[in-house]
Design a protein around this nucleic acid. Structure first.
Ligand SMILES: NC(=O)c1ccc[n+]([C@@H]2O[C@H](COP(=O)([O-])OP(=O)(O)OC[C@H]3O[C@@H](n4cnc5c(N)ncnc54)[C@H](O)[C@@H]3O)[C@@H](O)[C@H]2O)c1
Ligand SMILES: NC(=O)c1ccc[n+]([C@@H]2O[C@H](COP(=O)([O-])OP(=O)(O)OC[C@H]3O[C@@H](n4cnc5c(N)ncnc54)[C@H](O)[C@@H]3O)[C@@H](O)[C@H]2O)c1
Lengths: 204, 204
DNA sequence: GTTTAATTGTTAATTTTTTCACAACGTGAA
DNA sequence: TTCACGTTGTGAAAAAATTAACAATTAAAC
């Protein structure tokens, strides 16, 4: 089903952001080499990635930005309906929540969860913080499919299990631990220390 | 010089974390299939990745954790000497600083920078916040090679240029903008919205 | 000592991803 | 109309990454 390579999906998401900025700047058409210049990918790569999307440009004027965006959008399955939640409103969790609030992306954070009674019941950046024990019902009611996990590392495995039980389909994990959960749940790990180490390695 | 593929480097960094946890749990030896189980990579992949590192395990007892760690360490060039800095101590910047402080990795954040006079001169999580104007001298004095960029998106390009001028070799960029700088500077972009969108796509 | 069982390092095969190359196309100039 | 130009979509080639396969090796069992 998900035959499109992860790399391609990542780039499509990036193209969308880039092309959206061009549209916001008043541009109406775009060529693959223009996207290439700012994304770092080659023009051929971009055309190939776009093959799967189902929208075709024209040799005469390139891609009509409006239609291209629509195409990528639909391909990625980003709709208003889909929603995310964030688990753990510590310093990182609140920073991410603030970022989503100011950027206002299509995929919204519809709910937050924390175990700390001092945080539950409070609205942070427009999002209500629920007690973690309400996870299952809130996730079901709001039709939330993905979760951002920003709890302390000792709590991460347990919180992930709770999320899976609540019916979540994918987790973006910021805790530095490898989650041991069902293989049909998509997990993406993001560790900032690992990221810095990677940059350090390639900064020779 | 950097002939090792990025993917391999990323995995090596991950293996190191995993193996370190095993060591901390008292384990002394490890087999490729054990690393495989928790990392998600295949045993063959792990052995192949390890080929470049310069340490060999034995068919009899697998890898001696102490020596393996040492090998990966040296291969990655992670030494006490190398240092990072963080630019922009907003909510995200302070969260990252706190994370590094508590995790205490080899690659330390040796300095922070901000333009806000209310922040400069203050020590956050053990790290002094310098005025952004001191960037060049501080980076030179402390031999800092990589930077974590967490300034508002409008400031990112300008701050990046300042960093390059100060002699930085790599940037981990959290601002949602593609930096336009010299190609010999290694840039890794990390956008949380893009990450969530990727998870959403694969959570079918 | 010899055998057994398990695991490594590495070469070869396979699969995946990227790049190349070019026919086909549409536009605008002559 | 015809031509020249610049770009797309895509099949084919090339490159890169992953997986498979196996001889070599060593500890422990017998
Ligand atoms: N701060 C960073 O930049 C950073 C970066 C990468 C990873 N991390 C990791 O992300 C996690 C959070 O970091 P932080 O600095 O925000 O920590 P934090 O301690 O400030 O916040 C953790 C929050 O999670 C809540 N929590 C605890 N258990 C919970 C549970 N079972 N369910 C729901 N909420 C729960 C706590 O009440 C707290 O509000 C940690 O694992 C940290 O290692 C942090
Ligand atoms: N908050 C998040 O989770 C998140 C996630 C992804 C990306 N981002 C991006 O990261 C950046 C920071 O986010 P934030 O929420 O921490 O914002 P913030 O406004 O809280 O913090 C920005 C900080 O940068 C400082 N600053 C401004 N210009 C500077 C300069 N030229 N040099 C040094 N410091 C400077 C400001 O004084 C402030 O302290 C933004 O670009 C944001 O879009 C944030």
């Amino acid at each position: 089903m998900n035959k499109t390579p992860q790399k391609t999906v990542e780039r499509l998401i990036q193209y969308r952001r880039i092309v959206q900025q061009m549209r916001d700047a008043g541009q109406e058409k775009v060529f693959s080499h223009q996207i290439a210049r700012v994304s770092g990918a080659s023009p051929a790569q971009i055309r190939r990635d776009l093959m799967g999307v189902g929208y075709s440009g024209s040799p005469a004027h390139g891609y009509i930005i409006h239609d291209l965006l629509q195409g990528i959008y639909e391909f990625l399955g980003l709709t208003e309906k889909k929603g995310a939640c964030i688990v753990g409103l510590g310093s990182l969790g609140r920073a991410i929540l603030g970022y989503f609030h100011e950027q206002n992306p299509v995929l919204k954070i519809k709910a937050a969860f924390d175990t700390d009674p001092a945080k539950t019941g409070i609205v942070f950046h427009g999002t209500l913080c629920h007690p973690a024990s309400d996870m299952a019902s809130v996730i079901r009611d709001k039709e939330i499919t993905v979760a951002i996990l920003t709890v302390p590392v000792e709590q991460a495995q347990q919180a992930a299990q709770q999320l899976v039980y609540a019916g979540i389909r994918g987790i973006l994990n910021y805790a530095p631990v490898v989650l041991d959960i069902r293989p049909d749940i998509f997990v993406e790990n993001r560790d900032m220390i690992q990221a810095v180490e990677k940059v350090a390695y390639f900064s020779k």
